[in-house]
C-alpha cells in the first residue's frame, strides 16, 4: 500500500456525506449487522439517519460505511456503479473497486434483476472459508415477497421470511452454496433502513 490521501479525489459538490458520527454510527450499524447475522431471517432496523447516494437505501449505504475500507475490495453491479456511488465509496471508505465479482470481499447489488449467479462470487478456501465474499443485496421489500422458510443456526425452529425481488433461480443457487459448506458466500438483504442476514449455514425452502 502506498500513502493514500483523500485529496486526490476531487470532491464533487454532489458527493453525499458519510456517517454523521463515524464512531457511534458505525458501532450501531455493526450491532444491527451482528444481530441480523446472529438471528437470520429477522428484520433488524438501523436507527441512524444518512443522506445516501442514489441508488443506495439507507441501510445499504450504512453497511458500506461501517464495514468497508482500504482492506476490502468491493464489486458493484452495473446500476450501482453508474452513479455517484463509486466516488462516494472511494472517498469515504477508501475501498478499492474491482471489475470482477470473484475478486470482491463485498459486493453491492441494487438491481436484483441483474444479479450474477452466486457461484461467480468468491466462496473462500477450504482452509480459510472466512475469506469468502459478503453480498449486500438491496431489495424492494423485506416483508412483502414470496414466503420462504429458513432453518439453521440462529433460528429457533424455523423462520418465515418474505424477501421480494429475487430472481427465480436464487434459492436453487442458495442450495448449491449451502452444499459447499463451510465454503460459501454470506448475504445481507437490505431495504429502507432495515436488513436481514442470510449466513451460509441457513437452509431455505422457497
Amino acid at each position: 500500500m502506498s500513502l493514500r490521501s483523500s485529496h486526490q479525489f476531487s470532491t464533487s459538490p454532489t458527493l453525499k456525506p458519510g456517517l454523521a458520527d463515524p464512531i457511534f454510527d458505525a458501532q450501531s450499524v455493526f450491532r444491527a449487522a451482528l444481530s441480523a447475522n446472529a438471528y437470520p431471517g429477522r428484520r433488524v432496523s438501523i436507527d441512524r439517519a444518512l443522506d445516501a447516494p442514489q441508488p443506495l437505501a439507507t441501510s445499504t449505504a450504512m453497511l458500506c460505511l461501517s464495514l468497508m475500507d482500504l482492506e476490502t475490495p468491493v464489486w458493484l453491479d452495473r446500476q450501482t456503479a453508474a452513479g455517484d456511488v463509486p466516488q462516494w465509496l472511494r472517498f469515504h471508505c477508501g475501498a478499492p473497486l474491482v471489475e470482477r465479482a470473484v475478486g470482491a470481499r463485498f459486493a453491492i447489488i441494487t438491481d436484483t434483476g441483474a444479479l450474477p449467479h452466486l457461484n461467480e462470487f468468491y466462496a473462500g478456501e477450504i482452509q480459510y472459508p472466512d475469506r469468502s465474499a459478503t453480498l449486500i443485496v438491496q431489495v424492494p421489500s423485506l416483508t412483502e415477497g414470496p414466503t420462504s422458510v429458513w432453518t439453521g443456526p440462529g433460528i429457533r425452529d424455523s423462520a418465515s421470511v418474505r424477501i421480494s425481488g429475487l430472481p427465480s433461480w436464487f434459492w436453487s443457487d442458495w442450495d448449491v452454496n449451502a452444499d459447499h459448506y463451510p465454503l460459501g458466500i454470506d448475504v445481507f438483504f437490505t431495504s429502507g433502513n432495515a436488513l436481514v442476514g442470510l449466513p451460509r449455514t441457513i437452509k431455505v425452502e422457497a
Binding site: A33, L34, S66, L67, R105, D130, T134, G154, P182, P199
Partner: peptide, 10 residues
C-alpha cells in the same frame, strides 16, 4: 467486526 460476522457465519 468483519471477522466477527464471518465467525457467526461459520
Amino acid at each position: 467486526r468483519r471477522s466477527l460476522l464471518k465467525a457467526l457465519s461459520i
